[in-house]
């Protein structure tokens, strides 16, 4: 195995005790660097001596008390954030997939300009988007004589706006590499265009679709700069809630709820990777066609 590696000489050196120690220190350091914040949050949430206004790590006395103390408002905001994130991913897929097909497959003149417009939300600073949507919400509210500020609709529209380009991007990338003859092959075997899409095109663009949806989900779920303009008491996303909480009075319950969210996200990632991600990606990657 090792002798086949292009890094044969390097490996030979790394196999010495010194090399091994060095290698492992680098690996451990890299993982620590990436995961230290998560580990500290999770550890501190279990620490009985974590008090208002102070994080204490490593834990000295363990307790689950913080988890029982999480106020209802945090659960509300987590629920709101999850709703928004699922909605953004869903709307992102519903709008982004057809858009990607149009951008790649249509013979429309000015496709380049369209593609740039679809990318625009990624290039505008999110704070600007936040302010823009705040103005929009006021304007629409005035025109329709409704109060939309701090409403779910306002948040949802803004989140979908920033999330959709991620789906467009991911699906466009995979469609550009798509071998059109697979669809011709399906047609030659008697599949209608709809059946061809169902049985051939869709399964093959699934990795792009999932990747895009996952990005959309994460962008929406983690957003502060946009949501902060559109949130109101009672309609506060989880990141905004934490942000506010940290500014006003730091409660260790935030550590506890954050830990729950981290675990949930971790489970979600595992699920996506298990069910759809790796397997599909590997199989399709193997064909390696233009």
């Amino acid at each position: 195995m090792i002798s086949k590696s292009p890094f044969k000489r390097l490996w030979w050196r790394l196999e010495t005790p010194v090399g091994q120690t060095l290698l492992w220190s680098i690996v451990v350091f890299a993982y620590l660097f990436l995961h230290a914040p998560t580990i500290i949050v999770m550890g501190a949430s279990l620490n009985a001596s974590s008090q208002y206004g102070a994080i204490s790590f490593p834990p000295t006395t363990f307790t689950l008390a913080r988890y029982w103390e999480i106020p209802a408002s945090q659960f509300h905001s987590i629920l709101l954030s999850l709703k928004l994130a699922f909605l953004s991913a869903t709307v992102g897929v519903l709008l982004g997939v057809p858009a990607a097909f149009g951008l790649v497959r249509s013979k429309l003149p000015g496709k380049g300009l369209l593609a740039a417009i679809f990318r625009a939300p990624l290039q505008i600073p999110t704070v600007v988007i936040g302010i823009t949507f705040l103005q929009l919400v006021y304007a629409v509210g005035d025109a329709l004589d409704l109060d939309l500020s701090g409403s779910f609709v306002g948040l949802a529209v803004a989140h979908c706006f920033v999330a959709t380009p991620y789906v467009v991007g991911a699906v466009t990338a995979i469609l550009q590499r798509f071998d059109g003859r697979l669809e011709e092959a399906a047609a030659s075997l008697g599949a209608t265009p709809l059946r061809t899409f169902r049985r051939v095109t869709l399964p093959l663009i699934m990795p792009g679709l999932y990747a895009g949806a996952l990005y959309a989900f994460m962008v929406s779920f983690g957003d502060v700069p946009i949501s902060i303009f559109l949130s109101a008491p009672g309609y506060m996303t989880y990141p905004v809630e934490i942000f506010m909480g940290l500014e006003q009075n730091f409660s260790p319950t935030i550590l506890a709820s954050a830990t729950l969210v981290i675990l949930f996200c971790f489970a979600l990632m595992l699920f996506v990777q298990r069910v759809v991600g790796l397997e599909t990606l590997l199989r399709i990657g193997g064909t390696g066609r233009r």
């Binding site: 003859r181 011709e184 092959a185 399906a186 599949a191 051939v200 093959l204």
Partner: peptide
């Protein structure tokens, strides 16, 4: 094409990569 009764073999085969050989033949 899907209403003409023919079969086609493509250059580089164009087998469906997400289906087994059995599923490809059965398509």
């Amino acid at each position: 094409p899907h209403r003409r009764e023919f079969g086609m073999v493509f250059q580089d085969y164009a087998l469906f990569p997400h289906m087994t050989i059995g599923e490809n033949i059965a398509f």
